[in-house]
């Protein structure tokens, strides 16, 4: 298993096995609840409920696959998409790891660093939630205290500010077009704030367009 292509093929085989087994396991959970309690819900309830979320979240899910797979690499994608919390945790975690290790996304070194970062992140998340649930009676008051609320309300600004310093500073010429567009858009239509994920590919297309023009003109 020497070339990168051979390694990637192997990772895809391993990833598909885990992902599809995991998918079956996920479907087994509601099935087991229905069987154990003899509580099969009317199909109309499920369809009505899905109608409320599937159109937006299936779209977001598809967009996330197109956007994040190239960033996370093979192993990172299988793990990241199965363990979830991509935008607020796994993607920034992988980007930070690759940046700090001095490796580029889309390369073999980037791929392994991203995979290790996402796997560790998944393990730590699992541990934190498990410990939190087990110690809930002791820590609940502290975690839910109003004094701490502003900190948890501002995770995304606190996360994307530093990320902007790293990536916008390195590529400010490319960043200007999508940044100005997005800032203007969100100021004019604040209700879009809840669907920022849907706008990621719009930002990416603008950035790719700007990068192409600047590259052709020899400005980057």
């Amino acid at each position: 298993m020497d070339s990168y292509d051979v390694f990637r093929d192997y990772e895809h085989r391993v990833g598909r096995w885990w992902m599809l087994t995991g998918f079956a396991l996920l479907l087994a959970v509601p099935t087991a609840i229905c069987v154990r309690y003899d509580a099969w819900p009317p199909i109309t309830w499920v369809l009505k409920g899905l109608l409320g979320v599937a159109p937006i979240y299936w779209t977001v899910g598809t967009i996330e696959v197109l956007t994040y797979v190239p960033m996370l690499g093979t192993g990172g994608s299988y793990l990241g998409f199965f363990t979830g919390n991509l935008t607020s945790l796994k993607v920034p975690c992988a980007l930070n790891a690759m940046e700090a290790a001095g490796v580029e996304p889309g390369t073999e070194a980037g791929e392994v660093i991203s995979t290790i970062a996402i796997a560790v992140s998944a393990l730590v998340t699992t541990a934190v939630i498990a410990i939190g649930v087990l110690l809930l009676s002791q820590i609940r008051g502290f975690l839910e205290s109003p004094a701490l609320q502003p900190a948890f309300d501002n995770i995304l600004p606190a996360l994307f500010g530093p990320l902007a310093v790293v990536y916008v500073a390195k590529n400010w010429k490319i960043a200007m077009t999508p940044l100005v567009f997005m800032i203007t858009l969100f100021i004019c239509v604040p209700s879009l704030a809840s669907s920022a994920s849907v706008l990621v590919p719009v930002g990416a297309l603008l950035a790719i367009g700007a990068a192409r023009i600047l590259y052709k003109k020899g400005l980057v």
């Binding site: 993607v91 996304p105 995304l156 999508p178 940044l179 997005m182 969100f186």
Partner: peptide, 15 residues
Amino acid sequence: MSALFLGMISAFLGM
């Protein structure tokens, strides 16, 4: 690849 990241970061900075 950098443009892809910047697209994501721009959307969340704009938010």
